[in-house]
Amino acid sequence: MIENRPFGRLVAHFILIVGIVLVAFPIYYTFIASTYPTQAILSPPLPLLPGDQFLQNYSDALFGGARSVGSVSMGRILLNTTVVALAIAVGKITISLLSAYAIVFFRFPLRMVFFWMIFVTLMLPVEVRIVPTYQVIVDLGLIDTYAGLTVPLMASATATFLFRQFFLTVPDELVEAARIDGAGPLRFLRDILLPLSKTNIAALFVITFIYGWTQYLWPLLITNDNSMNTIIIALRKMISFTDADTQWNLVMATTILAILPPVVVVVAMQRWFVKGLIESEK
């Protein structure tokens, strides 16, 4: 039985409200700044209510190529980032799902050795293997391409481990029943494992999409053409060393545009995301 403690609930709600304000206020302040001209932003204090430049600033940020990054519109840069994030998310999930499936349900020599080889790569993030990976991409001629931006980031030891742990909980009776019914490996994967894994896939999709959306170091190295920049790189290029040369209204508007897609993905998939983290449906 849960005791009714009004004072405890009041304290808990107060802490939650303070936490929400601390997290949300910088985002709100950024949105407010995106509705004012640069002169107002550089002349504090900035009002806490939206200004009258909302449509103008966001229109310039999205379509004003000459005022954005190297004559490339922010619409194109957002498209690049969306393609990269989706490709990384789908690629990570597909490769990890198939590798975990092979490790758990197939019997072949050195099966666990290969698994531990995959697992050890957790100690080798992109930053550690950046030079050889970059050299491979250069040799393959993939600079300034979507393949160069995404393929090196698709492998994921973490996702492979999570899928493997989930597949190990699938009852042997289910596997035997599928075999008796004449289900081959591909049919077993498609008709049984994928439906069972949908919450895990959703949770990993949210995590890997945000991972791909916020990439900075790898896109910075692999792109020379401004038309292939991602949103994080574009934001950095929009900021000059001196405040007077930076169009802060466009920077703030672009920051809000950069935040929106990950927020939409999290909000749209939050139910599946939570279920994928805390439940195991079988």
Rank of each mutant, 00 (worst) to 15 (best):
V151E: 10
A155D: 09
F241V: 09
L221C: 03
E3L: 11
G75M: 13
G141P: 12
S73K: 05
V267L: 15
S71M: 09
R67T: 14
I27S: 06
I207A: 08
M117I: 14
V131K: 01
M154I: 15
A178R: 01
G70F: 07
A183G: 14
G212E: 10
L149E: 11
P37K: 02
L168R: 12
I32L: 14
Q135H: 08
V120S: 12
V84Q: 04
L174W: 09
Q53N: 12
V267M: 13
D139K: 11
S96Q: 02
G64Y: 00
T35G: 08
S156N: 05
D225R: 10
L98F: 15
N249W: 03
R190F: 12
S96F: 03
V104T: 14
P195T: 10
R187W: 02
T30M: 13
L235S: 07
V90A: 13
I103C: 01
I143D: 05
F54S: 06
V131I: 14
F115C: 10
Q247K: 12
I278P: 01
L97F: 14
L204C: 04
L220E: 09
Q215K: 09
G75H: 01
V90Y: 03
P261M: 06
M228K: 11
L149V: 11
M112N: 15
A66R: 12
R107M: 08
A100I: 01
N200L: 14
I231C: 00
G75L: 14
F105V: 08
F119A: 15
F205P: 05
I137H: 02
K198Q: 14
N249K: 04
P261G: 06
S96A: 15
I192T: 15
S99M: 07
F119S: 12
Y134A: 03
F25D: 06
Y146F: 15
Q270G: 09
A203Q: 02
A40W: 05
L140H: 06
V170I: 11
L168V: 12
Y58E: 06
G184R: 03
G141F: 10
A268P: 03
I137V: 15
A203L: 04
T242S: 13
I259M: 12
M123E: 10
G148S: 09
A85V: 12
M154D: 12
V206P: 08
L196F: 10
P152V: 12
A66H: 11
D225K: 10
Y101K: 00
A89W: 00
A87E: 05
I93C: 07
D52T: 14
I17Y: 14
R76W: 02
I20T: 10
F167R: 05
Q165F: 04
I259Y: 00
